[in-house]
């Protein structure tokens, strides 16, 4: 029997998810032994035309990382959907929109104005911005670039997704388990996020020091205090989002004295990660005084970046209809 064919693709992403595949280390051998990788632009020389030449469903599984920002990414998502039996959203950006999704606070115009004209490091006296089509000379030849959309979307906001591998990037253990589940045909119902459905605190090494009832009088940022390397970070006043975040990563950030920023996203019962996270934090504030509460909340410098760092496109509000202008503050 021939080995199942597998593909990897990247859209709007940083490359960290590709690193995660490399991080499989010797486990990658198990994977390579069991499957045939037929498409992986970052590592192997295959072209879109190779995918187009495949039969529908020829790929047993395709792992797509990155959010969807451009017309080309949309097309690739659609193409890979058609050619794959299983399409797996790989990593936070593909799962929930990820860090690139924070750009939904602005629209295309504002981003172009800032990036190509207004940013202090830019010299662009002619105000040149990328064009989707550019006629060259008189021979009628035209260069084209993919369209840059107003809105960043998660993969399942573009095509149907079968499974999700959460994380920024997904933890190695979850990747291996997912690949093995695919090979052994032991997958859970479609639509499942392939990680345990309980909060990160449950597997956090600091859990024993987390008080049953937390009452925070102050919120702190990691550089402001000498962090106790054993005590629960929330109990130290740091904004650790462990209570609102899905487990499965074994808390590497927390183990390195950094509060969890929520990259694995919410558990299955939560519809909006940010709302859940802000609710969890607000509930722990120990104050009944309106002014004091307002002051404490002001200490959260960047609420969207804090609570929606990985999930703005997948949030319930999605975004306000883009209004023109207004460069990033």
């Amino acid at each position: 029997m021939s080995k199942p064919k597998v593909g990897f693709y990247w859209c709007a992403s940083c490359g960290g998810c590709e690193e995660a595949v490399v991080d499989l280390a010797e486990d990658v051998l198990k994977v390579v032994e069991a499957v045939e990788i037929v498409f992986w632009p970052v590592a192997l020389d295959f072209k879109r035309s190779d995918v187009e030449a495949m039969k529908d469903g020829e790929l047993a599984a395709c792992f797509v990382n990155g959010a969807i920002r451009t017309s080309e990414q949309e097309e690739m998502a659609e193409l890979l959907r058609q050619k794959s039996q299983l399409l797996i959203a790989f990593g936070s950006c593909s799962h929930l929109g990820g860090v690139p999704g924070l750009a939904n606070l602005w629209d295309r115009q504002a981003i172009f104005d800032y990036v190509y004209k207004e940013a202090p490091s830019v010299t662009n006296p002619d105000g040149v911005v990328p064009q989707e089509r550019l006629k060259l000379g008189s021979n009628g030849y035209a260069l084209t670039l993919p369209a840059f959309r107003d809105t960043v979307r998660a993969l399942d906001q573009v095509v149907e997704v079968d499974y999700y591998l959460p994380g920024c990037p997904p933890p190695v253990k979850l990747i291996v388990n997912a690949v093995m589940a695919i090979l052994d045909n032991k997958l859970p119902p479609k639509g499942t996020v392939l990680a345990p459905d309980k909060a990160l605190c449950e597997e956090c090494p600091r859990k024993p020091t987390k008080p049953d009832k937390l009452a925070l009088k102050e919120l702190k940022r990691p550089h402001q205090i000498q962090i106790d390397s054993e005590k629960c970070l929330l109990a130290q006043g740091l904004l650790c989002l462990g209570p609102a975040t899905r487990s499965g990563c074994e808390a590497p950030c927390v183990s390195a004295n950094m509060p969890c920023t929520g990259c694995l996203g919410p558990t299955s019962r939560v519809k909006d990660y940010g709302a859940k996270a802000l609710s969890a934090i607000a509930s722990l504030i120990d104050s009944e005084d309106e002014k004091e509460i307002a002051n404490l909340m002001e200490q959260i410098v960047d609420p969207i970046g804090t609570f929606y760092r990985y999930s703005l496109p997948a949030s319930l509000l999605h975004r306000r209809v883009p209004h023109k202008g207004g460069a990033p503050a």
Partner: peptide, 21 residues
């Protein structure tokens, strides 16, 4: 609000997902 594109995601029954995990 820009209507969020409807997620193309097989609806998982909550209980099922919990049981699986």
């Amino acid at each position: 609000l820009e209507r969020p594109p409807k997620p193309h995601r097989a609806a998982v029954k909550e209980r099922e997902a919990v049981a699986v995990s």
